[in-house]
């Protein structure tokens, strides 16, 4: 299901710099050829093994594509007329301690950009949420893939804006772990089997259990810039 009318856009009025989160460019980054090596459902071997004798003639995967809809989308940036934009910033970081403060939230929302049930083999969802406080705001664009009994994949793009400094930090973290490993860790945390099933539906409960496979930070300082 594509929620093509949903989007979230941050714009800096003086410079007309903006960063948008949209479904279409996110889906453009999904592999359409199957060349990256397709994921298989956990019972694929069992499924095909029992069919080798009876339906051996049927071997062709029609129009292979990454059916998990995995994307590395970090948002669509728009720089007005050669103005500044996000640049790699190895030392940059999002000040978590400031975001942990219980400053009143002035605006908050969440929109889904696309979602698939993977034919009842888990979930694949790309959503964006935002919260705006007096002095700062945080956006989290999260791709969450749970392929039952195979793997869990979380790709987070966080955008932090400090209103006073007019600075934007974008942090991308890709995490991935085997389903069985995650399950073991949840069990070690003391969860009962029913609670583990529930935890697997909630990316927040499992993100910290997944090894980081990719991390990058970019930033842009928009202060004093204007067109």
């Amino acid at each position: 299901m594509i929620f093509g009318d949903n989007h979230l856009t941050l714009s800096h009025t003086p410079t007309q710099w903006s960063l948008s989160f949209l479904a279409e460019p996110a889906l453009d980054l999904v592999d359409k050829t199957g060349e990256t090596g397709l994921l298989k459902v956990h019972y694929a071997k069992e499924w095909s093994a029992t069919r080798e004798k009876t339906s051996a003639g049927i071997k062709e995967v029609v129009r292979p594509f990454d059916w998990s809809y995995t994307t590395s989308y970090k948002g669509t940036e728009h720089r007005a007329g050669g103005g500044k934009g996000l640049e790699s910033d190895e030392k940059g970081r999002i000040p978590i301690e400031l975001l942990q403060r219980r400053d009143p939230i002035l605006f908050a929302d969440e929109v889904v950009l696309y979602e698939s049930e993977l034919d009842d083999n888990g979930i694949s969802i790309l959503s964006v949420k935002v919260r705006v406080m007096e002095q700062r705001m945080l956006v989290l664009c999260r791709f969450f893939l749970r392929l039952d009994n195979v793997l869990v994949r979380i790709r987070d793009t966080r955008v932090y804006v400090d209103f006073g400094e007019e600075k934007v930090v974008r942090e991308y973290t890709s995490r991935e772990g085997e389903f069985g490993e995650v399950k073991k860790k949840l069990y070690m945390e003391g969860l009962m089997p029913d609670a583990i099933t529930v935890a697997f539906r909630d990316a927040n409960q499992i993100a910290h259990l997944l090894p980081v496979v990719e991390h990058e930070v970019e930033s842009v300082d928009l202060k004093g810039e204007s067109r």
Partner: peptide
């Protein structure tokens, strides 16, 4: 997971010729 009973409950029509496999690795 095996056999006709599974297929009757899981398979999908598609704009293809003949039979095809789902890219998921299971399902016709």
């Amino acid at each position: 997971h095996e056999g006709a009973m599974c297929d009757l409950l899981w398979s999908d029509p598609d704009e293809i010729d003949g039979w095809g496999l789902s890219p998921r690795g299971a399902g016709f």
